[in-house]
């Protein structure tokens, strides 16, 4: 194995395809969906199954409970929190829209538009998390208060953790965006991150409908 035997060992200079060696594959493989985006779609599929497991547990326990929410010493009614949760929902949906605007901007090659839109998205995301923490602090029950508490905090908590992970992703994109690493041709990471952010948004809409509206 001589050093000269390999013409393909060079690494691209930009940080773009940092987790991606599709540049080494033949041209034909570059057509269609890009590796990072396909990877993200598959990752989201696995995340869907993760939440499916939690939702299945929720429905299983709820269907077996004699009354739901359980009655007793602790007040499990989430309806008083509908207003704040609704407000949080609007923020997260808006952030999805701004995220998509940022993606459209970079598809046109508009780097400023990307940075502006993603800044707003991140601010909305942080506000969502802050609002959720505030809402937690006003609830009269904890994770150890029976199945209602366990399922509520597990579902919303793991959603919150995913929002946090999404924010980290968006933060990296924003940093790289300000460094000018994306262009109309090279923005797979933006596509992937925005897909993830939309997924997080959809999970929240399911949670909001299930936990707060249906109760």
């Amino acid at each position: 194995m001589t050093a000269g035997a390999n013409a393909l060992t060079a690494v691209p200079e930009t940080g773009e395809d940092i987790l991606d060696v599709s540049f080494l594959a033949d041209e034909h493989a570059r057509s269609g969906i890009s590796n990072p985006v396909l990877g993200m779609i598959l990752f989201i599929a696995s995340e869907v199954m993760f939440f499916a497991g939690l939702f299945a547990a929720y429905f299983n326990i709820r269907s077996a409970a004699p009354v739901w929410p359980p009655t007793g010493n602790i007040e499990f009614d989430l309806h008083p929190h509908l207003a704040i949760a609704g407000f949080l929902t609007i923020m997260l949906v808006t952030s999805s829209v701004t995220c998509q605007l940022g993606l459209w901007a970079i598809r046109r090659g508009d780097r400023t538009g990307l940075v502006r839109a993603f800044t707003i998205t991140i601010v909305l995301g942080v506000l969502f998390l802050a609002g959720q923490l505030y809402d937690y602090s006003t609830l009269g029950f904890g994770i150890n208060d029976g199945p209602f508490g366990s399922t509520f905090y597990t579902l919303t908590g793991f959603h919150g953790a995913h929002v946090f992970a999404g924010l980290l992703m968006l933060g990296v994109i924003l940093y790289r965006g300000t460094a000018g690493q994306f262009s109309a041709r090279h923005h797979d990471a933006v596509e992937a991150a925005s897909l993830y952010w939309h997924f997080v948004d959809v999970v929240w809409i399911c949670l909001f409908s299930l936990l707060y509206i249906l109760g």
Binding site: S46, E47, M49, F50, F51, A52, G53, L54, A57, N60, I61, A64, A65, P70, G142, I143, N144, G146, P147, G149, S150, T151, T154, F158
Partner: peptide, 28 residues
């Protein structure tokens, strides 16, 4: 990921007083 969700629920049951799996606490 479904196993991961189960393991997380078990961890919560064990360490944070969760009630997913113990019928004595309303779990299944």
């Amino acid at each position: 990921p479904v196993l991961t969700s189960a393991l997380i629920m078990l961890f919560i049951d064990r360490n944070y007083g969760g009630s997913f799996f113990d019928p004595a606490n309303g779990g299944n």
